[in-house]
Amino acid sequence: MLPTLLFSLNLEFNFFRMIKKTTVYLNNPSPSVDQVGIIDRIDRITSRSIKDETKLQGLKLALNMVDLTTLEGADTENKVRQLCNKAQHLHDAYPGLPTVAAVCVYPNFVKTAKQCLQGSGINVASVATAFPSGQSSLEVKLLDVKIATDAGAEEIDMVISRGKFHEGEYNFVFDEIATIKEACGKSRLKVILETGELGSFDKVRKASDIAIEAGADFIKTSTGKISPAATLPVTLVMLEAIKDHYYRTGIQVGMKPAGGISNSKLALQYLLLVKETLGKDWLTNQWFRFGASSLANDLLMQIVKQQTGVYQSKDYFSKD
């Protein structure tokens, strides 16, 4: 009798402890998502026509939202320097272009990137927390974050523990994000859900809510290492989570689709989705980013095309 009682007391104790940390999340359980409805909505977005001045304005806005990214095993100091140079000199043949928002690298390149970008106004973002799989201990993840922030990263892109999420260990996921957020200090935290590994819109929504409630400054779709990466439907699901949180709290959370966005038309459709879902306050690189490597050049080509009326060739735009 006694051991059973103790056991149940113990359980209860744990239960309350868990609730304490995740109260906010549990008070607002995630709604489910209707996939067909989401697709219908996206169809309406993609059937919009974006042209003339709207297009030019949108292209420039999109360019300003790019996190220019290199996350390869083959990355070198030189490669990072070249990328940072590109970030500051997108296409000097055309003056008056905006810069990208940030350069996104592995932690060990943050120092290099910081040096290159000094005074440019372009942030350095670093992936951390055992990117891209997240399969490591919290200690290692925290150290990863510390290395990046110590080196001056203004933004940290962490990955959630998808395995734990699938196991239903939502409290674990929540607590991990909250702990990392604390470790980030002044750096802004982007939480990568890796939607391609979550398997359904319902789970994307749930992961979004957990990340938001745990303190994410941004939620981000993907690492870019898994397919599918960012899609318009998945982004809409995440924007809806941001919107509901905003309705409840008045607190803005940013959105970063990453991976698979390589052409301008698609980028503009993302912007339109943001415009019609969250409005003006999110149409700035403070609250919306594209994680992409080749998008910037396509945006540049389209901007030049819009201004000259002449279709462009890739040979005239620098690749770094």
Binding site: G199, S200, F201, P233
Partner: peptide, 10 residues
Amino acid sequence: EKIGAAGSGY
């Protein structure tokens, strides 16, 4: 819902 199906919209 067409997730996991051919032409899935996920």
